[in-house]
């Protein structure tokens, strides 16, 4: 469980977030939706400790034998947090020329500190297999298509073996086929591997179709949250996006129609 407590963030004099208090559950998929500039990515990157909040704290709680342990992600040792929370930015650029397998092996660094044990190798193999990358493992990243490269990045954070996986817009630049495939994979990550996935999504309907919980953000504050049925409603979405939206239930999923 990740608890975000009264977090605020401003760039210069412009407040972009908060105060926000949120709890990310230990299971399932949580989607963060909202208009451009609402602070979705800022919230996710602060929860994943890639950015420091101006005030407030983020704790990660893990149930182990000793009971519930809370770690302040911004104060605790980075190496300890890396075993509990994995976070991936939207844009990734490396100067090193890596193969898929080398990239995914980096995911084991929190455990191996650079020296891979058989357990680490098995975890890398599993992550590669899970994301259907086994055949591509020897290819260099610059030889892959956008969708394949995105899967390789996700495989790296999965190999990290953390309870929480935070992804900033993993569907960015993916076509319909790859976007659906990515969401199906993330659903399996949550269901079969028992991980908690939190992601920023631009498309309300992807969020509605695949998430257990949706958090709607506007102007740096959480304005609605709940199951897809509770959040994907005409009055809620109109307030979040400032745009008239009609919602129809298609195949049992609330679907927003906002194209005209």
């Amino acid at each position: 469980m990740i608890t975000v407590d009264a977090v605020t963030k401003a760039y210069g004099d412009t407040p972009v977030l908060g105060p926000v208090s949120e709890v990310l559950a230990d299971r399932g998929i949580t989607s963060v939706i909202g208009p451009n500039g609402a602070g979705k990515s800022t919230l996710l990157t602060i929860a994943g400790r890639l950015a420091e909040p101006d005030s407030g704290t983020v704790h990660v709680h893990v149930d182990d034998a000793a009971g519930a342990v809370g770690l302040d992600v911004h104060r605790a040792r980075s190496a300890d947090v890396a075993k509990l929370v994995a976070v991936l930015r939207q844009e990734n650029h490396f100067t090193a020329r890596l193969t898929v397998r080398e990239l995914v092996s980096f995911g084991r660094f929190p455990h191996s500190r650079g020296r891979l044990t058989p357990t680490d190798v098995a975890a890398v193999d599993e992550a590669l297999g899970f994301l259907d990358l086994t055949a591509l493992q020897g290819r260099h990243l610059d030889e892959l298509s956008g969708g394949q490269r995105q899967r390789a990045y996700v495989a790296m954070v999965l190999a990290q073996g953390t309870r929480h996986v935070l992804l900033d817009e993993p569907l960015n630049n993916l076509d319909i086929r790859h976007a659906v495939r990515m969401m199906r994979l993330l659903r399996r990550v949550a269901d079969e591997l028992g991980r908690a996935v939190a992601l920023v999504v631009h498309d309300v309907n992807f969020a509605a179709a695949w998430s257990d919980r949706i958090v709607a953000v506007r102007d740096g504050r959480v304005v609605a949250q709940g199951t897809p049925e509770e959040v994907v409603r005409e009055d809620v979405l109109r307030e979040v996006f400032d745009t008239p939206v009609r919602v129809h239930v298609l195949d049992g999923v609330p679907t927003a129609v906002y194209f005209r």
Partner: peptide
């Protein structure tokens, strides 16, 4: 520190995610 340098090479965000005090 050669293994840490490999991770450092991936940039601030990825290195932090992988548990390095960047």
């Amino acid at each position: 520190r050669h293994a840490r340098l490999d991770v450092l090479h991936l940039g601030r965000d990825v290195a932090t995610n992988l548990g390095l005090d960047h």
